[in-house]
């Protein structure tokens, strides 16, 4: 049993947009022998666009408070995030705090107002790093009881799980890890030109039509390469590329209807966990093509 401190983030709360990720991640961890210790009373990480209202120090203070709580509750155990923006925001704050004594002093002065302190030392990691580095592709493959044979998957890595920090030393322009996860499940990874393209991120809210144009290109590339499903590690990618398909179809006269799932859902299914545990009942575009493996 491997144990980690866990930061779910706002979109993984009960009844929030990435509830399908949260539920399938917990099932995946349980099947793999991972125990996640959720930080009690965590706050938002500030996501991608907290910079505008929050500026520099208040924005970083958000992650600093989570670090301080994590240390108090679970010591220096690795802190794992599943959301791309949470991981990125925490990792940025972690690096600036560890490398710049002024930032560390300022953040501690702010933390003091909350009766907290943080002297550094917790490593911030993404769930896919845990899978790759602490378990490895062979171990992930060895658990497969229902190989997803014949399913063609477009591995959509997206932006923030990939840039600027990268996963497992992978290449920014053509990372391989998600395709290797697909193959570990027994499915086929298809070529996918939009693997690391942007879906619009938070701008899908404020600039929906500009984002829909990006989403159209991503969907088109997946369909052109014969994909049955799109798989992703990122909750914003999953949401944007899934729920705006009707809007895209209206805007561009297309007829896209392709399921967009998380890597964690594919693992749970391939490991024999079934439909509910994989949270596949929580897809807005039903992933019927995967039903035969449930």
């Amino acid at each position: 049993m491997k144990e980690y401190t866990f930061y779910p983030g706002c979109s993984s709360e009960k009844g929030a947009s990435a509830a399908n990720m949260e539920n399938s991640v917990h099932a995946m961890c349980q099947m793999l022998g991972i125990k996640l210790h959720e930080i009690d009373d965590w706050n938002c990480c500030s996501a991608s666009i907290g910079y505008a209202g929050g500026g520099e120090l208040p924005r970083m203070a958000l992650s600093a408070r989570n670090f301080a709580l994590a240390k108090k509750q679970f010591g220096n155990r690795d802190l794992v995030a599943t959301c791309a923006a949470c991981w990125l925001g925490m990792r940025e704050t972690h690096e600036r705090l560890e490398e710049d004594q002024q930032v560390k002093a300022d953040l501690n002065e702010a933390l003091q107002a909350a009766g907290l302190s943080y002297d550094g030392g917790i490593k911030t990691r993404h769930m896919v790093e845990v899978l790759i580095e602490d378990f490895g592709f062979d171990a992930l493959k060895a658990k497969v009881t229902k190989p997803l044979t014949g399913i063609k998957v477009a591995g959509y890595v997206g932006c923030q799980t990939n840039r600027p920090f990268g996963v497992a030393g992978d290449n920014f322009e053509n990372p391989q890890y998600l395709d290797k996860m697909t193959e570990a499940c027994g499915a086929t990874a298809v070529p996918f030109e939009k693997k690391v393209a942007c879906c619009g991120g938070a701008l899908a809210f404020s600039e929906n039509e500009k984002s829909c144009a990006l989403i159209r290109d991503i969907l088109q590339s997946a369909v052109d390469n014969g994909a049955d499903v799109i798989s992703t590690p990122c909750p914003v990618c999953q949401l944007n590329v899934e729920v705006y398909q009707d809007k895209v179809n209206k805007m561009f006269g297309t007829r896209f209807r392709i399921p967009v799932v998380y890597y964690s859902q594919l693992f749970v299914l391939a490991w024999g966990g079934g439909w509910q545990k994989a949270a596949l009942h929580q897809q807005v575009v039903p992933a019927d093509v995967l039903k035969k493996f449930a």
């Binding site: 929050g54 208040p58 002065e109 702010a110 933390l111």
Partner: peptide, 11 residues
Amino acid sequence: QAMLQKAAAIE
């Protein structure tokens, strides 16, 4: 809330 106010004041 106090932490965010303090952080803004330091900035």
